[in-house]
Amino acid sequence: MNEERMKILSMLSEGKITAEEADRLLDAVGVPAVGKGDHGVGSDGLPRYLYVNVNSFNENGEEKKENVNIKVPMALIKAGVNIASLMPEDVQGEINKAMNEKGVKFNLSDIKKENLDEFLVALRELEVNVDGENERVRIYCQ
């Protein structure tokens, strides 16, 4: 058992922190919680996180200690769309215009919550694997 984990558990047993706080701290030190559904979809069937992992390898195929791991909550997308829907029409128009100039025909007001849920459900199946000579990139949702 590592030192940080021991410290958190002793703080819990001494009553300095609550069970919920201990759970959060264990998450923070990298101890995975059991049965929390972190490694699957949420109770609503939607993926909870978008993961981006980049690993590099040397010429012998051994993994170098050069990694980038990013975990983004999907709730962030929902919250972003919610804010976008509250934007004044002229601001939305400006965004649509800028996207059009970049070649993306896009109407911000067309993104509805129901469509977003469908999109997020579809993302459950998303998995992008790019294997290069020295790098491997993996993008997936869970």
Binding site: Y49, N67, N69, K71, P73, A79, N82, I83
Partner: peptide
């Protein structure tokens, strides 16, 4: 514009769980 207040709080709340790890030798 008043609805922006809870929307921004929701956005901040949804940041919970974000993890960024960058490691090299």
């Amino acid at each position: 514009s008043l609805k922006l207040i809870p929307a921004v709080l929701t956005l901040l709340g949804s940041l919970s769980g974000t993890e960024i790890e960058i490691k090299d030798k």
